[in-house]
Design a protein around this nucleic acid. Structure first.
Lengths: 113, 113
DNA sequence: ACCTCACTTCGATCATTATCGAAATGACTG
DNA sequence: CAGTCATTTCGATAATGATCGAAGTGAGGT
């Protein structure tokens, strides 16, 4: 992972509504959530949420897929794993038992072998 | 970890020079680095670095300790672990093999049993 | 006790970002 | 093929953050 990507991702998460959104999607797992449901859960107007979802998508943290009339958003687990891996890279000069994190729901495993 | 703390920490890391600083300290491990050495490594004026170090400290990501004439900064590993733990909380609705990350150099172990 | 050096605070300027309602888009449904 | 509904784009406003030089602070050395 490059520094610029990491900064984008961290900046995307450093905002109340976007962090809530991302955690919501992380916990939703493979099922994802439609934009409207997220807006409802956070209690913010759709236009505001759309702005935040665009930022998360630009940072590579979420993906979207059309499902009937709704757009389903999902957390991008490989991106999340890459981000924490970047933060902890060469941790403690490699001297200690520093385990990298890894999260992979069933359907995302293809991207993180 | 509370949401406000996580947002502070993510916001603190979402900046080129602060991210570089933090990663430098993560890799420096228990030894830490004096402010002047960091400023030299990044090529930025001391006043700018001081501003960024204050933000990292306010977010709880680094600690400082006086050592002779220098101030030694160190990454706060428990805070880092808590942050990634917060991001991955209840990941995938708990259905998958989601391992939390943990990094602890020798001298920091007391804080993460 | 003074002086020196490492670092921080101050003040001003510039740039980026969050917010929301209204209007537009575009894909499914009947 | 027209209507409807979920979502995005637009435009304007307000707030927050980054930058740097100069001046200040305070612990250590001599």
């Amino acid at each position: 992972m490059e520094a610029g990507q990491a900064i984008s991702a961290l900046g995307a998460l450093a905002q109340e509504h976007r962090l809530q959104t991302f955690r919501l999607l992380v916990q939703a797992g493979d099922a994802g959530m439609p934009a409207g449901a997220i807006a409802g859960a956070l209690g913010i107007p759709g236009s505001s949420l759309s702005f935040h979802l665009a930022q998360l998508a630009a940072a590579g943290l979420v993906t979207q897929e059309r499902r009937h009339r709704s757009l389903i958003y999902r957390a991008d687990y490989p991106a999340m794993n890459a981000l924490v891996g970047y933060l902890m890279e060469n941790c403690c000069a490699g001297q200690a038992k520093c385990g990298p994190a890894a999260c992979a729901p069933a359907a995302a495993e293809k991207e993180t072998p």
